Computed example of a mutant assay.
Amino acid sequence: MNWDFSNKVVLVTGASRGIGQGIAEAFLHAGAVVLATATSEAPTAWMADRMAAGEPLHYIQADFSAPGWQDALMAAIERLGGVDVCINNAGINKVADVREVDPDDYRRILEVNLVAPALLTGLVAPLMIRRGGGRIVNISSIFGIGSRAGRISYSSSKAGLLGQTRAAALDLAPHGVLVNAVAPGFVRTELTERVLGEQGMADAASRLPMRRLAEVADIVPAVLFLASAQNSYITGQVLAVDGGYLAE
């Protein structure tokens, strides 16, 4: 499908690599002005290349685990004249048994994965309403629906994000702002490789009904659809893109 986001401003958090990079690049290809965030001081290599080529990509550093990110991010949005779509993708993970969780790690994961999307949704929603409506897509996880050993922090944050999605959808539905979530399964990214390792990814793939991990390109169309004008009546929902994992 040929997506058209011409004249739309799209915010994508956590866009340095993986799913976030794939989403941001897809919106650029579809004609959007994209504001991308990451924690690095300077744009990452793919961003710098696109910006040097004159594409409508803007970058701002945002560490959602640290205070003070709201003012700088909102100033960047206002310089672009507002925002039509917000993709809450930034996320972190640390594997630890519930008996060994470090309190600081737990708080940081919640700050990035759960608290920041709630605050950002609250900040961008009035701007979307002013423009006649908008779309917010939260990137959750199948571990927000099910879980596995060692995922107490991550599952807590991603399950909370699903509840947040439903609550925000109810608050904003009367104003034409639709809020949904995508829950990816096992996706071949740097983060997945770092957490699982090559053997862990192979083992995971062997247990999936489709017998392969998702690629970033498998996730992106679900996000684009929920963020598009083609989605005119879906809100408060979660779309699992998991190769059949949850069906079992």
Results as ranks from 00 to 15, higher is better:
1 M>F: 14
1 M>S: 15
1 M>C: 13
1 M>D: 14
2 N>V: 12
2 N>C: 00
3 W>R: 12
4 D>K: 08
6 S>D: 08
8 K>E: 10
9 V>I: 15
9 V>P: 12
10 V>A: 12
10 V>P: 10
11 L>Y: 10
11 L>W: 13
11 L>M: 11
11 L>H: 12
11 L>Q: 11
12 V>T: 02
12 V>H: 03
14 G>C: 03
14 G>F: 04
15 A>F: 00
16 S>L: 03
16 S>F: 02
17 R>I: 08
17 R>W: 08
17 R>A: 13
18 G>A: 07
19 I>V: 07
19 I>F: 01
19 I>K: 01
20 G>T: 02
21 Q>C: 06
22 G>Q: 09
22 G>L: 06
22 G>F: 09
23 I>V: 15
24 A>K: 01
25 E>S: 13
26 A>Q: 02
27 F>R: 08
27 F>S: 09
28 L>S: 09
29 H>R: 15
29 H>I: 13
31 G>K: 03
31 G>Y: 07
31 G>M: 04
33 V>L: 13
33 V>G: 05
33 V>Q: 14
34 V>E: 06
35 L>I: 14
35 L>W: 11
36 A>L: 06
38 A>S: 15
38 A>W: 05
39 T>L: 15
40 S>G: 15
41 E>I: 12
41 E>L: 14
41 E>A: 15
43 P>C: 10
45 A>E: 15
46 W>I: 01
46 W>V: 04
46 W>D: 02
47 M>N: 11
47 M>T: 11
47 M>K: 13
48 A>W: 06
49 D>P: 00
49 D>C: 00
49 D>E: 10
50 R>G: 01
50 R>W: 05
51 M>K: 09
51 M>F: 04
51 M>Y: 05
52 A>Y: 08
52 A>D: 13
53 A>F: 00
53 A>K: 11
54 G>Q: 02
54 G>A: 04
55 E>Y: 00
56 P>M: 02
57 L>H: 03
57 L>K: 09
57 L>Q: 06
57 L>C: 07
58 H>F: 13
59 Y>S: 04
59 Y>W: 06
59 Y>M: 04
61 Q>V: 00
61 Q>G: 02
61 Q>I: 00
61 Q>C: 05
62 A>Y: 04
64 F>D: 08
64 F>N: 04
65 S>Q: 04
65 S>C: 02
66 A>H: 11
67 P>H: 08
67 P>A: 12
67 P>E: 12
